[in-house]
């Protein structure tokens, strides 16, 4: 790890000032569960770490007068998993938070960090850059891409967005509050993520000097919400494919609006718009859920070693939909 300066602001304003506008010089340190490892491996270097844990007002889940929840970005994943108000409104979110990594990591990792963590792509993590290009060619395409993208993978980005919570929060319509040199702005969480086209670009849309301060959740309003992860190991493992769904139902038990967001399959949390269209007006059963899974991967393109992820995404969608609707498939 290279030497760095540690700054501990007490307010959002101080944090933004200390952060400056050159991301290469200063970066935010919150829980540090990922950043410090990246720094030890020299994948990330920063002259200054702006340690925001002491910034006041950025923790906890707050119920808004107008309905909905306001969650501080510094709320730990462990606190999220145990929050009564969040669990009452969105039990799927507290459950998902409770399955992130292991207890030690959940205890320090923050909501903001979970949403903005860097990709786990092993080329990136071994120092070959976010796009892992060499001599103008993608190392991912020619190399070992078993965990890489099957959607949104026209290149040059092939990594997958790794957040456990992002697909679920997008599905329920979360917004984020960003605070920067120009003041505060609100953005749909879905619009925070982008697919970089050049090595210098980031995988999110934070402007230089901006800090993610809060996440806003609308009231659940009767929607059926669920997130299904395919994981090999029970603990301390990444999902291989995630499907997070939120379904609005009409009076007759038909789906009036569906949000289906896939995780771990694309460089951004992937909105399965074909599936969302397909589900409109349908009554959910096993057959509909299976077809919805097919629709989600209709445009998937496997790389040389990740064909199996198409099946995983397909089944994750099916299972998330059935679980959201409370339908138990025979034998499952």
């Amino acid at each position: 790890m290279q030497p760095f300066e540690l700054a501990s602001p007490k307010t959002r304003e101080q944090a933004v000032r200390l952060l400056g506008t050159d991301p290469a010089r200063a970066t935010i340190l919150a829980g540090g569960s990922d950043l410090l490892g990246l720094m030890k491996d020299n994948v990330v270097t920063a002259g200054r770490l702006v340690y925001v844990k002491s910034v006041s007002g950025l923790t906890g889940v707050h119920t808004e007068k107008a309905g909905g929840l306001r969650i501080g970005a510094l709320t730990t994943v462990d606190d999220l998993s145990a929050d009564a108000a969040l669990g009452f409104e969105y039990p799927a979110i507290t459950a998902a938070a409770g399955h992130v990594a292991g207890p030690q990591i959940r205890n320090v990792a923050t909501l903001g960090g979970n949403l903005l963590q860097r990709p786990r792509c092993w080329y990136f993590r071994n120092g070959f850059g976010l796009l892992a290009q060499r001599d103008g060619k993608s190392m991912v395409v020619d190399g070992d891409n078993r965990y890489h993208a099957i959607l949104g993978n026209d290149g040059p980005a092939y990594f997958v967005q790794p957040s456990t919570l992002a697909p679920l929060l997008i599905a329920v319509g979360a917004q984020v509050v960003l605070f920067g040199p120009q003041g505060e702005r609100r953005l749909d969480l879905e619009k925070l993520y982008r697919i970089p086209k050049t090595e210098g670009e980031r995988e999110h849309d934070l402007k230089p000097g901006e800090v993610l301060t809060e996440v806003l959740l609308p009231p659940v309003a009767g929607r059926k919400v669920y997130s299904y992860e395919v994981r090999q190991r029970q603990t301390l493992d990444w999902s291989l494919a995630t499907a997070s769904v939120a379904l609005e139902m009409d009076g007759g038990g038909k789906i009036s609006r569906a949000r289906v967001i896939l995780g771990q399959v694309a460089p951004v949390p992937w909105a399965a718009t074909e599936t969302e269209e397909f589900l409109k007006g349908k009554t959910l059963d096993v057959d509909v859920a299976s077809k919805a899974g097919e629709a989600a991967v209709a445009k998937a393109k496997p790389l040389s070693q990740n064909r199996y992820k198409i099946q995983l995404a397909r089944v994750a969608v099916k299972r998330a939909l059935l679980a959201a609707a409370g339908i138990v498939e025979e034998g499952a």
Partner: peptide, 14 residues
Amino acid sequence: DPVTGQVLTTDFES
């Protein structure tokens, strides 16, 4: 890694 010949699974995560 067929490209670099390096081991890609260099930590307890991978």
